[in-house]
């Protein structure tokens, strides 16, 4: 078993999930509550990774963060090295790649909160932000957990994007799925099967947990 690769994948998935929590919640809130007509464009962009081949997404991210783009050059000047084939570059790609798996469950749950509860809260003098924190978030726990779990699992299993953006540097960008691919390429089927089985079990447990959560009608408050 390639423990280095596994540990890297877990770190990447955790970091990706945290970033997605930070930007996915405001983004989902904006998509659900903004009166802008053109927000469907943003929704479409967020959902792109669902249909785009990972290699295509990876290719564009590689170009965008590489020395060919102004942003990539600026980063390299600032930090001293480029983003491609680093953990940070991989993180950017993973965040984009897993975005719909966080934003869509968040948004679906925010949208299901009865709008009159928000209006009642505003009328009681509570700001929009505080209303979000005191009403929307507690009533969206299920969607938030689903989004977190799905982005974690999805990042854990990503392959094409990693290959394009990260390459195959042990301990830096060789994630668990790349490691499996390497094992198979070198005809080490035993190692590939051990790691594959682990991923299979982990993914199944995560999904089973998510669907079990969907079944509970309402997360009961403390009685």
């Amino acid at each position: 078993m390639d423990w280095t690769a596994l540990w890297l994948s877990v770190r990447l998935a955790t970091a990706t999930t945290l970033v997605l929590l930070a930007i996915g919640i405001p983004l989902a809130y904006w998509i659900v509550f903004s009166p802008r007509r053109w927000k469907f464009l943003v929704e479409a962009i967020v959902a792109l990774p669902l249909v785009l081949p990972p290699t295509v997404l990876g290719f564009y991210v590689l170009i965008a963060i590489g020395p060919l783009s102004p942003a990539g050059r600026a980063y390299a000047r600032l930090v001293g090295h480029g983003l491609p084939f680093t953990f940070e570059g991989l993180l950017i790609a993973s965040v984009l790649y897993s975005m719909p798996f966080a934003v869509q469950p968040f948004g679906a749950e925010f949208a299901s909160v009865d709008r009159r509860l928000l209006e009642a809260s505003w009328s009681l003098g509570v700001s929009r932000l505080a209303t979000f924190r005191r009403v929307v978030v507690p009533l969206s726990v299920r969607g938030l957990v689903t989004g977190i779990v799905l982005s974690f699992a999805h990042t854990l299993g990503e392959f094409g994007v990693v290959l394009m953006v990260g390459g195959n540097l042990p301990g830096v960008t060789r994630t668990v799925s790349i490691s499996i691919y390497d094992s198979v390429q070198s005809l080490d089927y035993a190692a590939a099967s051990r790691t594959s089985l682990l991923l299979l079990v982990v993914s199944f447990v995560i999904l089973a947990f998510t669907y079990a959560l969907q079944r509970t009608v309402w997360i009961r408050p403390r009685q």
């Binding site: 505003w122 009328s123 700001s127």
Partner: peptide, 14 residues
């Protein structure tokens, strides 16, 4: 609405 200091009661209890 936050600055109007009104109380609102809707048709269904919200």
């Amino acid at each position: 609405p936050q600055e109007r200091r009104v109380g609102v009661v809707f048709q269904e209890p919200t």
